[in-house]
């Protein structure tokens, strides 16, 4: 099993849903969440995502790192906006309720509200992504992609990526150690220039091994007739069950709500200030 994404066999209904259904659901929900700036909708969607995640038995420590990275990413971006465009909220919502401060640096309710929305946007998709990545067997992704219309050659390219990431990673690690034994210093001890030079000495062998790989793997695949037919079947393909249909229907309903809100707001923004 390929553990890049932290997939594990768990006995929950989302684990038993097909990759295709989850992929479509994920794309639908994150797209509508990306478009909508309706605070109520985003909050609702985020809560729904968290509740859904509770049903999958994924433990906090499994995604703690991801969560921290996203939080750091979000904070940096929010601070940057606060510094670079402190009046952007006023501009967006068309009103101006100053809380304190003055001039360029005045802090408005609109700005805080806008940034809160942005924070929701940075965060809401994380649970969905965690569900998708942690409950779907990586082998199912390619079949799923092909099923929703991606040409099979591209879907298979994606499968190759998943297949070889661990190999490339271990190549990188081995090469790095071998180069250190040769005398390249890449730890923090060395000077910047030496470290840069050392890094290059790892990249070159990695690049050449990888280019070699492309040749041998494509031969191995041709010898087993990859690319012969217009279509291809997938060992991991699963037939749709009621579970999958309900995932799809549920997602479509949520998208419908999102669109209805877009229409009733007369745009992507939900504006409480008017």
């Amino acid at each position: 099993m390929n553990n890049l994404f932290g997939y594990k066999k768990r006995d929950t209904w989302l684990n038993h849903t097909t990759g295709t259904a989850k992929l479509v659901g994920f794309l639908l929900l994150t797209t509508i969440g990306m478009i909508s700036y309706d605070t109520r909708f985003l909050l609702g969607l985020g809560l729904f995502a968290v509740v859904l995640m509770q049903t999958t038995q994924i433990k906090y420590h499994e995604y703690a790192l991801m969560l921290n990275l996203v939080l750091v990413f979000a904070v940096i971006n929010l601070v940057m906006i606060m510094v670079l465009a402190p009046q952007y909220g006023t501009q967006l919502y068309g009103t101006r309720h100053v809380l304190f401060g003055s001039g360029y640096w005045s802090i408005t309710q609109e700005q805080l509200f806008y940034e809160f929305n942005l924070l929701l946007k940075y965060l809401f998709s994380l649970p969905f992504a965690i569900i998708l990545l942690f409950t779907t067997n990586p082998s199912e992704f390619s079949a799923g992609l092909n099923k929703i219309g991606v040409p099979y050659k591209i879907a298979y390219a994606f499968a190759i990526t998943l297949r070889y990431i661990p190999d490339v990673q271990s190549d990188y690690h081995t090469i790095s150690l071998a180069q250190q034994a040769r005398g390249y210093e890449i730890s923090k001890k060395a000077s910047l220039k030496a470290r840069a030079k050392g890094a290059v000495q790892i990249i070159l062998p990695l690049v050449f091994t990888s280019l070699d790989r492309i040749e041998t793997i494509s031969q191995a695949m041709e010898l087993r007739r990859f690319g012969r037919q217009k279509k291809r079947s997938w060992y991991q393909e699963q037939s749709f069950s009621r579970r999958d249909v309900s995932v799809l229907v549920g997602s479509v309903i949520i998208v419908g709500i999102g669109i209805a809100l877009l229409l009733s707001n007369g745009g992507r923004l939900y504006n409480p200030f008017k």
């Binding site: 050659k153 591209i154 298979y156 390219a157 490339v168 990888s210 990859f226």
Partner: peptide
Amino acid sequence: RSVVATGI
């Protein structure tokens, strides 16, 4: 070959 080049 292009498929493999993409993947790798």
